[in-house]
Every structure is written in structure tokens, then in C-alpha cells.
Simulated assay, not measured.
Amino acid sequence: MFEWIQSFADWLIFSTIQLSPDSQLGTALNFFVYDTIKILILLFIIVFLMGIVNAYFPVDRLRSFLHRKKLYGLEYFISALFGAVTPFCSCSSVPLFIGFVQGGIPLGVTFAFLITSPLVNEIAIAMFIGLFGVKTTLIYAGSGILLGTFGGWLLGKFNLEPLLSDWAKKIIENSNQSNTEYHEEENPSFRDRLPGISREAWGIVSGVLVYIIIGIGIGAAMHGYVPENFFATYLGGGGWWTVPAAVILAVPMYANAAAIVPVIEVFVTKGIPLGTALAFMMATVGLSLPEGTLLKKVMTFKLIAIFFGIVTLFIILSGYLFNMLL
């Protein structure tokens, strides 16, 4: 399929529009057409498959299950895994995080979801498979889930509930932490679910379409016009300081996976080590100033600083690990 897409891109840009393969514009447009078609196809397929999973594992059931059961630490992994199958950016994860707090789920478990949700989702996985291959995708997804699991567990051990905002504390105090069983409603058949799952998948794809186009457009411009050694000069070379520098520079930025993955691909082609580039991506999609603003509704500044600081440290460590494994 990828060869067909590349042939189409070559035909459109080099034969129909008649741009030279050696020109900067021709190279950039060819990259743009190929990556846009490939990523949209992969994205729809994987979002559709994840829609099937989500249809049989809804948020309310997860909340009820975590509330009723004593899982001896496994709840952090379950929450992180749920975060991995939800298609949210860092800001979109915050309302669901607030819902977890409101539902009485332990704070550490909610942090496990908040950390993992923007890092690992079907959008990132679909794009990673097409751009970096299965091995890199598995390492990235696995490390993101482990980061969320361990990060949530560690934050839970700090007993940070007193650092929640007054609004969040009031909600927790007023909530009746009942152990009401989850009541199964009559479930439609799998066949009846498919049209809704398809519409939801297309809704997600169309919702991030503009970000995909912008991200690939930036990547295409960098691919065609940025000098070969530009990024290697500042973040390449494998120096110990390049990973923390990449993460610290990325934290103030904001982008979702659809916008940043094509840029990361170009980073790698320009000479930046893959681990350093992935650390930059994780910091960009997992932490952002808009997310911090939204979290102010449920957290004090001190708790936000602790959350950002620990996740930043973990991402830096992940970058070093990626550079050793990839």
C-alpha cells in the first residue's frame, strides 16, 4: 500500500505538476502528499479498531471497577492502559481527569491516566507505525504506558490530596463514595455498533485533520528547505545535555501527536538521535502551558509544579533509554 501511495505522490508532483525531484519545492510537496495519505489511512484503521475496544470498555465501567476492587497497584497500569486507548491531547485529557477526581478515584490513579493519555493513543501509534516501524512503535507505546503507571504510583505515594484546589476538595467531600454495582444495560449487537463506531472514527480523524495537515506541512517544509545539518548542530551529536535540552525546550510548547509526529520524522532525517527526538515529542504532547492552565481548576500551583517536574524528569530518562535501545 505504501509503495502505491509513493507512486501516486511521484506521479502527482513530478509528472502531473512537473516539479523537479531535485527541487526543494518538489521534495517538500512529494513528502506532504505521501505522508498525508499514508497517515490518514493508518489513522482511520487504528481509530476504528480502538473504537471497537472502547465500545466494550467504557469510562463508567472503568471508574466503577477501580472504585470497587482492591488491585494491589494494578489499578495504575489499568488507568495508564485506558489512557493509551483514548484519543486525547494533554488539554483534552483534563476534563476526564476532573471526572475521575469527582468520581472518587485515587489521585495517583488519575495521574496515571493523565500522563499516558496524550503520550500514547491510536493517533500516535498509527503515525508511528507508518513513519518509524513496528519496533520503535512498540518501544514508544510500552515506555509511555510504563511512564504513566510508575509516575501515577509515585505521585500517589506522595499523598498530594491536600494540594488539590478548594473546588476539588469540596467535590470529593460531597461525593458519596458508594459501591453501587455497575448496571448492565441491554447491549446492542456488534453488528449494530459498527455504524456508530465508524462515525466516531471518522469524527476523530476529521477532528485532527487540520492538525495532521499543519504538522505534515511543517514537516514537509523542514524536509525540503531546512539545511541538512541544522538540527544536528543543536540537538544532534549525542551529547549528554541534548536530551534534557530537547525536553526543556519542548515543555512550553503545545501540540498533539498528529501535529508533532511528522516533525519528529524530519528531526531524525536531519541527524537528531531518535531517542532525543522522541523525548522532544513526549514533552510536547504530554506537557503544555494550556494543560497547566486547565489543571489550575483542580490543583494548586505547587501540585502542578510537582506533576510537571516529575513527568519532565521521567521523559528525560526515557530519552536516554530510547537512545540506548534504538
Rank of each mutant, 00 (worst) to 15 (best):
3 E>G: 06
3 E>S: 13
9 A>I: 01
15 S>R: 14
21 P>R: 13
22 D>L: 14
23 S>L: 05
25 L>F: 13
26 G>F: 06
27 T>M: 14
33 V>R: 00
35 D>C: 01
38 K>P: 01
41 I>C: 14
44 F>E: 06
46 I>N: 04
48 F>C: 02
54 N>I: 13
56 Y>P: 04
60 D>S: 14
71 L>F: 12
71 L>W: 06
73 G>R: 09
74 L>I: 14
79 S>F: 08
84 A>F: 02
87 P>V: 11
90 S>I: 13
94 V>E: 05
96 L>K: 03
96 L>W: 07
97 F>E: 12
97 F>D: 08
101 V>A: 07
104 G>C: 15
107 L>N: 05
110 T>S: 15
111 F>C: 08
113 F>T: 04
118 P>E: 12
119 L>V: 05
127 M>D: 01
129 I>H: 05
129 I>M: 10
130 G>E: 01
133 G>F: 15
135 K>C: 05
135 K>R: 15
139 I>E: 11
140 Y>C: 06
143 S>D: 09
146 L>S: 08
147 L>N: 06
149 T>H: 06
150 F>H: 01
153 W>M: 15
155 L>M: 15
158 F>D: 09
162 P>W: 09
164 L>D: 11
171 I>V: 15
171 I>K: 15
176 N>P: 04
178 S>C: 04
181 E>R: 06
182 Y>G: 03
191 R>F: 14
195 P>E: 10
200 E>Q: 13
201 A>M: 07
202 W>R: 11
205 V>A: 10
206 S>A: 07
207 G>L: 03
208 V>T: 04
210 V>P: 01
211 Y>T: 00
213 I>H: 00
215 G>A: 08
220 A>I: 02
222 M>E: 03
223 H>R: 12
224 G>D: 08
224 G>E: 09
224 G>R: 12
227 P>M: 09
227 P>G: 03
238 G>I: 14
243 V>I: 01
247 V>H: 10
247 V>W: 07
250 A>E: 02
250 A>N: 07
257 A>I: 03
257 A>V: 00
262 P>F: 02
278 L>G: 00
278 L>N: 07
285 V>D: 00
290 P>I: 08
294 L>H: 00
297 K>I: 14
298 V>M: 14
303 L>T: 06
304 I>T: 10
314 F>E: 11
317 L>Y: 06
319 G>T: 02
322 F>Q: 07
324 M>W: 15
326 L>C: 07
